[in-house]
């Protein structure tokens, strides 16, 4: 089943065409990697899918619904959650509160009802905390729930962003460069945890420059360069695709 369908999406910033007529599909329950050299338009694509930017043209369908132009609040409520390439945590809040805030958005009790209290509300609050703690445990931060988010190491902050996004109970999770700045041990842990997330039935979309990691976990790959989609396929096909090799050879930054 197709969960997300991107059709002929273009995104322009003034004169810059960050995405140029890109189409692809993300199949439910699979891991799709979006790769390409710096400036290819990957993060912009995430911003379009998550509703942070409206596409200049083209359409987006999520779960068989037209969601073109829906904003990020709406997309979140529909079940699209994300992390950010440049980490955006609630820095002055505790690790736990970061995730609780994510979990509340999927809670059955609206925030204003807490003003009046009552058993249902208390039960919902307990459930939210329990869910948040599960998410923290899943990313290995169960022990540090009480510390301020900005005291975590860089790698931990990345994991916290994933936990916070997961807490909204998304159907599609967009993760932008989760391995950036992680050491090898942390990157290995990341792969293991991404698999756990996938095994929960959550569709994953991943932007990542670490090719070992991508080839390890991705089931489908979309390659972008200069805003255009240049290839799409299984990891093995992509590794042998001459267009992809050419795009990356021009990029010395890629190891």
């Amino acid at each position: 089943m197709t969960l997300l369908e991107v059709t002929n999406v273009t995104k322009k910033f003034g004169g810059v065409t960050a995405i140029d007529e890109v189409s692809f599909r993300a199949e439910a329950g699979r891991v799709l990697a979006l790769i390409g050299p710096n400036g290819a338009g990957k993060s912009t694509m995430f911003n379009v899918i998550s509703g942070n930017y409206a596409p200049t043209s083209g359409t987006l369908r999520f779960d068989d619904r037209d969601v073109t132009g829906a904003n990020s609040v709406a997309m979140s409520r529909l079940g699209v959650s994300r992390t950010f390439q440049k980490i955006r945590l609630f820095k002055a809040l505790s690790v736990m509160d970061n995730v609780v805030i994510g979990a509340q958005s999927s809670a059955p009790v609206a925030p204003w009802r807490f003003f009046f209290g009552g058993g249902a509300v208390r039960a919902a609050a307990a459930e939210t905390r329990k869910h948040a703690l599960e998410m923290l445990d899943l990313v290995g931060l169960g022990d540090v729930g009480d510390v301020r988010a900005d005291t975590l190491s860089y790698g931990q902050q990345r994991m916290l962003e994933i936990a916070r996004a997961l807490a909204t109970k998304p159907r599609l999770l967009l993760i932008d460069e989760p391995a950036a700045g992680l050491n090898q041990a942390e990157a290995d842990g990341l792969v293991r945890r991404l698999r756990l997330i996938r095994d929960q039935g959550i569709t994953l979309m991943l932007v990542e420059h670490n090719m070992d990691l991508v080839m390890d976990i991705a089931e489908d790959i979309v390659v972008m360069n200069f805003g255009k989609k240049i290839a799409q396929g299984a990891p093995r096909e992509i590794q042998e695709n001459p267009d992809v090799i050419r795009a990356y050879l021009g990029e010395e930054a890629m190891a």
């Binding site: 609040v73 959650s81 955006r88 609630f90 909204t168």
Partner: peptide, 10 residues
């Protein structure tokens, strides 16, 4: 703390 994050959490 962060409006953009807040929005993306619904």
């Amino acid at each position: 703390e962060d409006e953009i994050s807040a929005k993306s959490l619904g």
